[in-house]
């Protein structure tokens, strides 16, 4: 049994990292907004979903005008990513302006904002579904092929304990782009002036405003960055997995949120590591559950397995793996 698990381990790690990086970037959107507003922005998963559809729309448009065949795939990809990131970023800012800021002004309880975010989530799903059906007659969309060559890495001949690894060329793209996004965000938050303002607002909003920081602007920037990253990740998801529908944001959002909690909600690096860890766990479970249980449980129980791990972690470390225990303010 152990031998079987080890054989496919490299493949599990590759697939787990792909999924994990997607979780990581989406998890950042949850954790940043939570860090600043103590709001679980449930609509974020659907911003991710909307991103994948906007990406598909741009891609289809470019196909219809012939760009897809005349331009190098990488250029097409960069254009699609950039447009999607800007549109979803602005969408995030708009959602905050229209739905959350008025509540904040009236000092509404946090629960109200939470319910609002669930409402926005439904609105996004249905709006996207409406337009998808209007344009294509079906709300499940298969994206135009991009970076879908199959590749094989024959590590079997070097290390016979392992099987060969196979993957799509899009994997490399997902891998590189998500890492770039994670590093860029880390630099933005920890090394730039507005990143510092963001951390200050997260720690003490009132005092930050006394330091001439426009708190509302910082909140807008936070939503822009989180939503732009989330939307761009939607494009990556579409390219990697091929099919999208308006409901992919729900489960993925829940899992990304879980990743954020696993890493310690509010902690950006924690969200990154939590996402990667959750992706690995999930893929490990999907690949090995049936081997471990001798066929009693199949790959479809992967979520149960991943969430049991989550519960165990939180029982022993309620603040999350990389979170700080809550300290009383002096």
């Amino acid at each position: 049994m152990l031998q079987q698990i080890i054989q496919i381990l490299p493949q599990v790690i590759i697939d787990g990292l792909t999924l994990g990086f997607v979780y990581a970037v989406v998890a950042i959107g949850y954790t940043m907004v939570y860090g600043i507003l103590e709001l679980i922005n449930f609509a974020h998963g659907d911003v991710f979903m909307t991103g994948s559809f906007i990406g598909a729309a741009v891609l289809f448009f470019m196909m219809s005008v012939g760009f897809l065949s005349s331009l190098p795939s990488l250029i097409v990809f960069i254009i699609v990513m950039a447009i999607t990131a800007i549109v979803t970023g602005l969408m995030g800012v708009g959602i905050e302006r229209v739905a959350y800021r008025p509540l904040r002004k009236r000092n509404a309880p946090k629960l109200i904002a939470l319910i609002t975010s669930i409402g926005i989530s439904f609105v996004l799903e249905d709006v996207v579904r409406f337009f998808a059906e209007l344009k294509t007659g079906n709300y499940i969309i298969t994206s135009p092929p991009l970076f879908n060559q199959k590749m094989t890495l024959d590590i079997h001949s070097v290390m016979p304990v392992f099987n060969k690894i196979t993957f799509q060329s899009s994997f490399i793209l997902v891998f590189i782009v998500t890492i770039i996004m994670l590093i860029a965000l880390d630099i933005f938050v920890n090394r730039t002036k507005w990143g510092m303002a963001m951390r200050a607002v997260a720690q003490d909003r009132e005092t930050a405003s006394l330091m001439s920081i426009n708190v509302n602007r910082v909140i807008s920037i936070t939503f822009f960055v989180g939503s732009a990253l989330g939307g761009a990740t939607g494009v990556l998801f579409m390219i990697q997995y091929g099919t999208i529908d308006p409901y992919i944001g729900f489960i993925l959002g829940i899992k990304a949120f879980t990743a954020a909690v696993l890493g310690g909600i509010g902690n950006i690096r924690g969200a990154m590591l939590g996402g990667i860890l959750l992706g690995l766990l999930e893929m490990f479970a999907a690949a090995n559950l049936s081997t471990i249980t001798h066929g009693a449980m199949g790959a479809e129980y992967k979520d149960v397995f991943a969430f049991i791990i989550l519960i165990l972690v939180l029982i022993f470390k309620p603040e999350g793996l990389f979170g700080k225990a809550v300290v009383e303010k002096v």
Binding site: Q203, D204, M211, V215
Partner: peptide, 23 residues
């Protein structure tokens, strides 16, 4: 708004100091 007043040149050292603890 507080940030506008601050920009005009009024600084407040708040009660309880309110240092940003993780900066």
């Amino acid at each position: 708004a507080p940030h506008q007043t601050a920009l005009l040149g009024i600084a407040q050292v708040p009660e309880g100091r309110r240092i940003f603890p993780r900066l």
